[in-house]
């Protein structure tokens, strides 16, 4: 099983998925992120899926779960860089990624986190 590296930049954690995720790696990433949010005191998480060619229901559910978990730990999650073909397929599949914030790219994801925090005070 391959583990996805988690980078820390200020109070943001950045995960860039570059591998073909199997279900085991997905679950591991979920756990690692939750641990890391707590240990680093991060306020935001960005999951970059620019390189991801497919998102099936399992991976899609991971995004929702991570968003919900990090929100409980007082951090917002943004999924960035979803490809058009992936988005179209998710819609057809019937997956709405409820509760997950999305942005077009990493830069806009960072801006979104700042905006959300600014609004929250």
């Amino acid at each position: 099983m391959e583990r996805v590296p988690i980078l820390k930049l200020g109070d943001i954690l950045i995960v860039s998925i570059q591998i073909d995720l199997d279900d085991q790696s997905v679950l591991a990433l979920q756990e690692d992120l939750a641990d890391m949010v707590v240990s680093s005191g991060a306020r935001g998480v960005i999951i970059d899926i620019t390189a991801v060619e497919i998102v099936d229901s399992f991976i899609g559910r991971m995004f929702s779960t991570i968003a919900a978990i990090t929100r409980m730990l007082d951090a917002e999650t943004v999924v960035v860089g979803m490809r058009p073909a992936v988005a179209i397929t998710l819609v057809e599949l019937g997956l709405s990624l409820g509760g997950v914030r999305t942005a077009l790219n990493l830069e806009k994801g960072v801006a979104m986190l700042e905006h959300v925090r600014g609004a929250a005070g």
Partner: peptide, 12 residues
């Protein structure tokens, strides 16, 4: 409709 939803998933 699907396009609007897909765009939303992408962050637009």
């Amino acid at each position: 409709l699907k396009t609007v939803v897909a765009a939303r998933l992408m962050g637009a």
